[in-house]
Amino acid sequence: MLKEELTIIIKELLPNAVIEEAGEWLNFSLEATEFKQAALQLRNFNQMPFDFLFCLTCIDWKTHFTMVYHLRSKKTNDNIVIKVKLNRDIPEIDTISDIWRTAEFHEREVFDLFGIIFLQHPDLRRLFLTDDWVGYPLRKDYDDPINMIKL
């Protein structure tokens, strides 16, 4: 499907979504409060259910965090990218691990490396690092004088 057609469909489904022009696929951002509801709508969208979450990650922009969700509809092979801006002091967002099961692992990874709190996550613990690790390594202000690799 063309990006323009997809834009019209998404605009109809999610009137609050702010569409971004750039990017290979359709990018749009949502508020953290309405994200969970929108995710459910996209997953259960009859015309093209976005049933495959193929990437979940976070970007630290120094002033705020952006959660990035890459979704694909297996029915039509269309990709969309959802972005959610998070406050840097209180980085909290609803979990989507009950909608896409793979998110349980991915959210634990993001919690481990970025310190994002996923509300109602069934098992939010560090995944790679030890429990007593201090700080979140993929944040831009993280500094470790011993283990840091810089060129």
Binding site: L113, L127, F128, L129, T130, P137, L138, I149
Partner: peptide, 11 residues
């Protein structure tokens, strides 16, 4: 996990 975590993304 994490026994062979090298944080390639950070590197």
């Amino acid at each position: 996990l994490g026994y062979i975590h090298r944080s390639i993304e950070k590197m």
